[in-house]
Simulated assay, not measured.
Amino acid sequence: MDRDLWSGLAIFGEIVEAGSFAKAATRLGLSASALSHAMRVLERKLDLRLLDRTTRSLAPTSAGEALLLRLRPAMASVEEVLGLLDGAREHPAGRVRVNAHRPAAVHLIMPRLPALARDCPDVLVELVVNDGFVDIVAERFDCGVRHAQGLQGDMISVRISNPVPLIFVASPHYLADHGRPEHPDDLAQHRCVSYRHASSGALHRWEFEQNGITSERAMPHNFVTNDVDVMRDAALAGLGVACLIKAQASHHLMAGDLIEVLSGWAPTLPPNHLYYPNRRQPTAAFRAFLAAMRL
């Protein structure tokens, strides 16, 4: 729509409601001469006289009255929408779309959602689990969660976890059949459960860390998956040695279903960060979600 036309219509409605140019000018913070000019432009564009004016009074013409009958509901709808936007800035309500890798979704986000649901019941969280990298802007997510080394440089990031320890594990019956590896070199004689990166399609190279020295190598494997929970299940099933996030394996370690191997060789991943596009006016719902996720 013509910007001058839309502005003129809003000014016309304000003048009629105020009953004078002077009062309308005070409401709008403009001069009476500016309003008079806007009305002349509007009437010229529409080729209609909308106001009958004298030195003491003004009233809409019949054409002006007909226009107002349609204009007032439209302006009320606009004001209602603007009011909803104001509410979105103040009251936490509405949807927050989040993209996170599975361990973060399970061990970081989900445990913090009950408090958010209690304190902000009108916030709807849509959590999409994806272990690959996603363009959160193109896919219309409000934020994502990844380890620090995977963040895009033009994003705002907030740390939501401590560094994430990994652990090498195998099932008791696998170790009974194949022996226990004591050194990374021993894995050449073992079966390994490997991970294929969802985004690049590359097989993950295992990392080893001891005394501040880090190395990585490709592992012999007899089972490959792109899902970290399936990796855990494969280790539980005795398919081989797996490298898991420690939190993912802790319950099974306590139950004796998995046993740690290569103790002291497992590396630690960087902390998880919640990241989102630089935005000047985030909604109250997003601010509430962000506050709930902080350490």
Score class of each variant (00 low, 15 high):
S171T: 15
L68W: 06
H91V: 00
R89Q: 14
R95K: 06
A138Y: 11
A100E: 04
A104Q: 00
V106A: 01
D154E: 03
N162K: 11
P165M: 10
L69I: 05
A105E: 08
P165I: 10
L113C: 07
A100F: 04
H37M: 10
A93S: 09
L127E: 02
L84H: 13
R89M: 12
V98I: 02
I167V: 15
H107N: 03
F168N: 14
L85W: 09
D119I: 00
V158T: 01
L127H: 03
L124G: 04
P103V: 03
A59H: 14
L48W: 13
G150Q: 07
L175N: 06
V123T: 00
L69W: 05
N130D: 12
P60V: 06
R118L: 01
R180L: 02
E182T: 11
I167Y: 10
A63Y: 14
L51I: 14
C120D: 01
G83C: 10
R159S: 11
P114D: 08
R146F: 09
A93C: 01
Q149F: 09
V134T: 11
R49S: 08
K45T: 08
L82S: 12
H107C: 02
V106H: 13
F141Y: 15
D86Q: 12
P172E: 15
A76N: 08
Q149Y: 09
G144T: 01
H101M: 06
N99S: 05
A176D: 15
I156E: 01
S157H: 10
N130G: 02
D135F: 04
M155G: 00
K45H: 05
I109N: 10
G179L: 00
H173N: 15
V164A: 08
R49Y: 02
Q149N: 10
L127F: 06
C143E: 12
D177F: 09
S62Y: 05
R56N: 14
S62R: 10
R112G: 01
A138L: 12
G83H: 13
A105P: 05
R146M: 09
I160Q: 00
D52P: 10
T54R: 14
C120R: 04
G179C: 00
L82K: 10
D131G: 06
Y174R: 15
L46P: 12
D47H: 12
L166R: 15
A38K: 07
V137G: 03
V169M: 04
G94W: 01
H101N: 07
A59T: 13
G150A: 03
E43I: 04
E80V: 07
R102P: 07
T55Y: 15
